[in-house]
Design a binder for these strands. Structure first.
Lengths: 221, 221
DNA sequence: AACCGCTTGTGAACGCAGGAACAAAGTCGC
DNA sequence: GCGACTTTGTTCCTGCGTTCACAAGCGGTT
């Protein structure tokens, strides 16, 4: 293969996902060209940084003109590996799990849930977004049949680790964990952690710091 | 004031929130002491980094022994500004908003929702977690009455910006945004963005990269 | 009372991300 | 056809975050 694969930094990958979303919106709106400045503004980043991010994909713009929306969108989608829809399984169909299963943003961005699982018998059989909630016993079978490589955990914290073990045993290679615990996964399995309350706590800290700074100004004044 | 306030890095603040969660769990389990190694393992970080994070709070451990769980927990809570419960308002009571309003993790970590708002008339009046969904018209009144400084946006993307404007106009100073758009907020207002599908796309990229690496090994082998 | 082992706290080096400035390149106008 | 303008791609640099490694300090033991 001639693919250079120049090791794209993870921070850049996360931003590429944002650019992809903006570009998709622009394409749907009929736009065909866009400049780095406009794209950066819509994505909330610095124009120079955006160009540096895109430079990891090789030259994909035209100097003096900008970027072609559809071309850039497709290129980013291919780099991110979402040019084809990827099958995912979701474990834990509580409030959050239901919201995730119903979230249209996943489907429009290259992900589809091919299996919803829960351990509670009274949740099994309910239909969410046109799909039935299945018992955990069917997990291996579904993962094998659909070749799903991504698993999402939206269970309570105390069962997240066993669920992680079952997912990896079934063949899942990437896990997105919403439970507030650090997961232990075998080597070769990527785990990403999303803790909703951590973000709130960072906000609380920034807000308190701002308040303290204001009052210290009063004191020093 | 004698508080030095040595400018804690934001990355450290985010990890402090994780340490706080782990410490709360340890305290509930009856543990009184913990070492940096054990704490780091439970939080999924490097022990040296954890000690450096804690060093921003001043000396709070005992050499040769470790950290006292309850003391450290209280100190981190005070630094983060969550030693008292903070009032928050939530706008957008769809699937995700309902999940957030019901999420017990917020309440146990120093946040309480004092107002749930939605623009859709058929959602107004429903009760979620013991609270009624209110019409947007009551937003200013509730923010003023409760002195809420934190707002959470869980609306569709196309109304997130106007909702942000209304929140800031009502006096909210910190915003947690789940809608997939970059918000424009006035100076002095902190905005944090959580895009659930970005995390999935990073996973997809890592998975694809791993697959490509494996096949290139085949080729070179 | 002195020693030894364990753990914290800190200092230094490394690597990475972010921002600004500059050169290359293509287009539009004349 | 030529020049000027616009915008990309790149390079340098500064600052931050992370990691490793060591010195300092405390408890337990003899």
């Amino acid at each position: 293969m001639s693919s250079p694969r120049p090791r794209i930094p993870e921070a850049t990958v996360a931003r590429l996902a944002v650019y992809l979303r903006v570009l998709t919106g622009l394409a749907d709106g009929g736009r065909s060209n866009v400049s780095s400045g406009e794209l950066a503004s819509a994505a909330g980043v610095n124009p120079a940084g955006l160009r540096k991010d895109l430079s990891h994909l090789g030259p994909c713009g035209v100097r003096g003109v900008g970027y072609e929306v559809a071309t850039l969108r497709d290129r980013i989608a291919r780099v991110l590996g979402v040019e084809r829809s990827r099958p995912c399984v979701l474990v834990g169909i509580g409030n959050l799990g239901t919201a995730l299963a119903d979230y249209a943003g996943f489907g429009s961005r290259g992900f589809r849930f091919v299996g919803l699982f829960d351990a509670a018998p009274d949740r099994v059989g309910r239909r969410i977004g046109g799909q039935p909630v299945r018992p955990m016993a069917e997990l291996d079978e579904v993962v094998a049949a659909t070749a799903a490589t991504i698993g999402v955990i939206a269970t309570p914290a105390d069962v997240a680790q066993p669920v992680c073990d079952r997912l990896t045993a079934a063949g899942v290679r990437s896990i997105l964990n919403f439970a507030p615990v650090a997961l232990n996964a075998p080597a070769g399995v990527d785990v990403r952690q999303v803790d909703l309350s951590v973000e709130l706590q960072v906000l609380a800290f920034l807000g308190q710091q701002r308040g303290a700074a204001a009052s210290s100004v009063e004191v020093t004044a």
